[in-house]
Amino acid sequence: MAKDSTPTLSLGMEVHELQHLAQVLKGRLHLSGIVEGNLSGQHKSPRQGISQDFAQHRDYVPGDDLKHLDWRAYAKSDRYVVKQYIEETNLRAFMVLDTSMSMNYQGTGLCKKGSYAAQLAAVLTCALLKQSEAVGLVCFGSQISQYLPARSQGEQLGHIIRTIENTPWQADTNAKETLLALGSRLPPKGVIFLLTDAFDLDENSSSGYFAELVGSIKKRGYQVILLHILDPSELEFPFDELSLFEGLEGEDPIKIDPNGVKAAYLAELNAFRASLEKEARAVGAKYCLCSTGLDLKDNLLQLLECLI
């Protein structure tokens, strides 16, 4: 909850609703990237150790634990070999939430883009915690405003929700600087759910900008999943009266007959989406468009499809 008069991001959702929605993801949120954690979980660890999954045989060397000796193989081949197993680990996931003013917009969507992104983050957190994964939170605008380290304890959900609701809107976005800075703060290896409208990523409209950003994060061993949050008004541009369009981040207003520019605007937007998706694929990241006009559950299912 907000402690002062600064407008803050509101989740607008009860915990039981989150848990109910998290049921949709139960047992289905398989993140394909190889991540490293400090608890046993559903995800493969690059280290071999105690696990149910057989990895390979290796010749016995003195000092090896005799319990790993494969006696059946010795009986067949008269050789001492040791069984090795793929070690499983838990997931370290970070919800990176854009809290810039451009997310504080509700057109014809169900709620503000920021709230929608927060709800998505909360549901994902809930689902991952139930899978004993460690979940952290990063809120950013022009700079990183909130950082919660990844934890897999049950109370982590409450921490995350409270942090989200206490985060004020930031007047501007500086995604590049922020995300580069984030790369150095994160512990090695994990998954980043980047929930943003990504308008800042297009500021210079130079190709490969997003790929460069993801590449720097990936160097730290992180898998990036971009949840592109857009309002239906941004996707469809349903205006038809002469309007004075004003930006949310201090852009100059512009008077336009929407009927005249609609086609060109939609072309621009679609091109941007396509380039984002293309760049994401190029660097092995995932891209999922989330319209705030859709029900949250539908978007979660869509996310699952993206992750397959």
């Binding site: 997310m103 917009y105 057109g107 309002d231 004003e246 981040e249």
Partner: peptide, 8 residues
């Protein structure tokens, strides 16, 4: 008509 719009 004034219209707030983020994708300016």
């Amino acid at each position: 008509k004034p219209q707030v719009f983020p994708a300016m």
